[in-house]
């Protein structure tokens, strides 16, 4: 069995403002990450291999933490514009989350104009939820029409955070924002719900790439914003294996916690067991020994 590959790209350059990262640096990091992940000489080749020109691609961001703790608009816009220009047309890219309001509070400007990159939430009148629930294992949810109908390919552009219940919230849990009732799936450390949600047809069939925004990492008391436990990590994490990406994200959170003398998530009784569940469902690799980690610096 071949190992899953995860690439961590760290910026050696200090951002003048970590809350508003420089798009030029971000683009350099994204290119480096995708080149290392794909083995291609140029990142654009990889993008053209993974995404087809006619496809509409969704970038699922996480904006529940407002401007202080969301997938940064600079990251999403840099990726969205570059992806659109490389693969097809920028109007075929949708940056999205649950609501227009959350996107705006996180610093995004809602955009639905023809010919340009789209940014809107499921509650926008162009979207909404499907009217019939999708039942899958323990789940029963209405899917966002963005995920289920408007896009053909998906990138989970999630924020890496500690989570009081799930242990870690990253690329897999980001898709909780694609259903109408995530509040129903936070018991039992969100296990098996996070894994089972990813296994549903509208997500598994469309998901192509995980990119974790770890420029800043809330390593304790997440997912809410607590500046005293926020690390300026200046990293992006890339993988085609959604479980491996989150497993490496977990490792990074544990390292930050250990450095600050905090107990591990396991010691706190909230290790992200959903990762092993996801592995059992053949969604990816949840064990570090089965993951090849490539570290790059730009």
């Amino acid at each position: 069995m071949s190992k899953a590959r995860v690439v961590i790209v760290t910026s050696s350059r200090n951002f003048s403002d970590i809350n508003r990262p420089d798009p030029g640096i971000i683009l350099t990091m994204l290119k480096k990450g995708l080149e290392a992940l794909s083995g291609a000489a140029r990142a654009e080749e990889a993008l053209r291999e993974w995404f087809r020109p006619g496809e509409t691609v969704g970038l699922k961001v996480n904006t529940i933490g407002r401007r202080a703790l969301s997938t940064s608009p600079e990251t999403a816009l840099t990726l969205g514009l570059w992806l659109g220009q490389t693969v097809g047309r920028e109007e075929n890219v949708i940056i999205w989350d649950r609501t227009d309001e959350e996107l705006k509070e996180a610093g995004y400007r809602i955009s639905t104009s023809p010919g340009s990159l789209k940014i809107f939430g499921t509650n926008n009148r162009r979207a909404g939820y499907q009217s019939e629930p999708t039942a899958h294992r323990h789940l029963g949810s209405l899917f966002s029409r963005i995920q289920a109908e408007l896009i053909q390919a998906s990138i989970s552009l999630a924020l890496l955070k500690d989570h009081g219940l799930a242990g870690v919230t990253a690329g897999l849990k980001n898709y909780f924002g694609a259903i109408h009732n995530p509040n129903k799936y936070h018991d039992s450390n969100c296990n098996p719900y996070i894994a089972e949600l990813f296994e549903t047809e509208p997500i598994r069939r469309k998901h192509r790439l995980t990119i974790l925004d770890a420029l800043r990492v809330q390593y304790h008391r997440g997912p809410a914003y607590h500046p005293q436990w926020l690390a300026a990590s200046r990293k992006f994490i890339f993988s085609l294996d959604p479980v491996a990406a989150d497993t490496v994200g977990w490792k990074i959170i544990e390292e930050l916690r250990a450095k600050k003398g905090l107990p591990s998530l396991k010691e706190e009784g909230r290790a992200p067991g959903y990762l092993l569940t996801a592995e059992k469902l053949n969604l990816g690799q949840a064990r570090l020994e089965n993951i090849e980690i490539i570290e790059e610096e730009v």
Binding site: I64, G164, K184, H186, P223, A224, Y225
Partner: peptide
Amino acid sequence: QLGDRERGFCG
């Protein structure tokens, strides 16, 4: 038990 901006199971 809920952090800031989180909702209960009831939604």
